[in-house]
Amino acid sequence: MDMHDWPHIKKSDRRKKRLVKKDFDKKLIRLIKQRKVLKIQKRNLPPVILDKPYQRGWVRYFVLRSDIARSEKAQFYNNLLAKINTYWRHYDKSFKRRKIRRGAYENCDASLHKLNELWPTDFHGDKLNLTDAEKDCFYLKETWNDRYDRWESKYVFAEAWRYVLVIKPYMVYAEKQADGLLEQELAQIEDQLTWNCLFPRVRKIKRSVYKYWKPEDEDVRYTNYLKNKPRYTSKEAYLDH
């Protein structure tokens, strides 16, 4: 016999509410785990090779310049380009800007199309696996980010003139395989979470509440020297500052 079924033990109203809420959170956690599994299954579906490839717009990217391609270091710069190349897609071959929302236009100018600038973690990490000779082709550049109000450091390729932009048709040779039953199950879970406004509760359960970004170097004018210090040192700290 379960302890909760004993006649002499009575549950308070507060405990009943807590048990109902705990049971609801457990069901919500199982639903989130099922949603994650379905997304992984959808992402791992094998592609289907098309019998007749078709064109879907245009793509612009960098290639090695013709005179550099005939030089002795052509293979070296080709290997480096594969790590820092950037691809821009557009429905029009001219890459003219189009209106994306009221009062705002996308800018597809070729002068803004640049090689990928590497973060220090990517430059020194194992993701790109840059050699020492390839690292010597970069220089450190510091720029001010107005959005986050901070300085950012990136590694920029110093010899961008070795590459030129080309525009080619963007051809589609394969498509992701579709699973109707998988899509239906995933859509039901998404509708249940969306229409019932359960995503805030999910973030709270997973302890992933978003916090505002805080700069590493705090402004000296707003530094509190008495923060996290014992009371007997407060007077000395106040007099020193």
Rank of each mutant, 00 (worst) to 15 (best):
R60H: 03
W6Y: 15
H124V: 00
N228G: 05
S234I: 00
I205Y: 03
D51G: 10
A174Y: 10
R102N: 13
D132L: 10
E183P: 00
T194R: 15
N228K: 10
L38Y: 14
I189M: 07
L115P: 09
I84L: 13
A133I: 05
Y155H: 12
D109R: 04
A174D: 08
P7N: 12
Y61D: 07
N145L: 06
D149V: 01
M171F: 10
V209T: 08
D51K: 08
I100P: 01
Q177L: 06
S208T: 12
M3T: 14
Y155C: 01
T194L: 10
K141C: 12
F123E: 08
K17C: 09
K206M: 08
V63S: 04
K127M: 13
D219I: 04
P169E: 07
I68N: 07
G57K: 02
S71G: 14
E236M: 12
V202F: 07
Y225V: 09
R97D: 13
R221I: 06
M171T: 07
P215T: 05
Y91G: 12
Y155Q: 06
F123L: 03
L19V: 03
R150H: 11
Q188E: 11
S153L: 09
V156P: 01
N85R: 03
K214V: 09
W161H: 11
I100Y: 05
Y87E: 09
E185I: 04
W195A: 06
V166E: 15
K127V: 05
L81K: 11
Y212Q: 13
Y163E: 12
A82L: 09
L28Y: 03
V20Y: 10
N79T: 13
M3G: 07
Y238R: 11
R102I: 05
R203H: 09
S66F: 09
Q55R: 12
D122A: 06
H241R: 12
S66I: 03
K204D: 08
S111T: 12
D25Y: 02
R101A: 11
L38E: 08
L31K: 03
Q192V: 10
R101T: 08
N145G: 01
L50E: 07
N224L: 11
W119Y: 04
Q192G: 00
